[in-house]
Computed example of a mutant assay.
Amino acid sequence: MEPLSDTDPSMPFQSLTSSLRSGPLAAYSLYIVGSALLASNPVVGRAAAHVVPPIGLAFWRWLIAFLIVLPFALSGLLAHRHRLREEWRRYLLLGVLGQGISGAIVYYGLERTSATNASLIYATSPAMILALAAVWLGDAIRPRQILGILLAMAGVLVILTRGDLEALRHLSFNVGDLLVLTGAVSWSVYTILLRQSGTPLPVVTAFAANALAGVLVLAPFYAWETVAVRPVPFSASTILSIVAVALFASVLALLAYQKTIAMMGAARASTALYVSPLWAALASWLLLAEPLQGFHLMGVLLVLPGVMLATLPARKPRAQAASEAA
Rank of each mutant, 00 (worst) to 15 (best):
L297Y: 08
V158G: 04
I192A: 12
S237Q: 14
L25A: 15
S119Y: 12
W60K: 00
L57Q: 03
L160G: 04
K259C: 04
L218S: 09
D6Y: 11
G103T: 01
Y257Q: 12
S114D: 10
P24G: 13
T7R: 15
L194R: 01
A246Y: 01
S235F: 09
A219R: 02
R61I: 01
Q99A: 05
P24V: 07
T124S: 15
S323H: 13
A256Q: 03
A280D: 09
R169W: 05
P233E: 07
A246L: 07
L132Y: 08
A27W: 08
L93C: 00
L282S: 13
A209V: 05
S235A: 14
A167M: 10
I261M: 14
T191C: 04
M1S: 10
I261F: 08
S5M: 01
A272W: 00
S22D: 06
A223D: 10
H170T: 15
E290R: 05
H170F: 09
A118D: 10
H296I: 09
R81S: 14
A310P: 06
D164G: 07
R318I: 14
G148P: 05
E166R: 15
V300E: 00
V51A: 08
M308K: 04
R195F: 07
I239M: 09
F13E: 13
L309D: 11
G109H: 06
V96E: 03
A104P: 05
A184V: 10
A133M: 11
T199P: 02
R83F: 01
L178I: 13
P3H: 13
G148V: 10
G34K: 04
L179Y: 00
W285Y: 11
L286C: 10
A184F: 01
S19H: 14
P220R: 10
T199N: 05
I261E: 12
Y257L: 10
A228M: 15
S19L: 04
L171F: 13
Q196M: 06
A325Q: 12
L4F: 03
R268I: 12
V185R: 03
P71F: 02
L288S: 05
A325V: 08
R61E: 02
D8T: 03
A208Q: 11
P277N: 07
Q145A: 11
L25P: 07
L157T: 11
A49G: 06
A47K: 07
A184I: 02
G198W: 00
P12Y: 06
V275T: 05
F248A: 06
G294F: 03
E324R: 02
A49C: 07
V69T: 05
Q145V: 06
G294I: 00
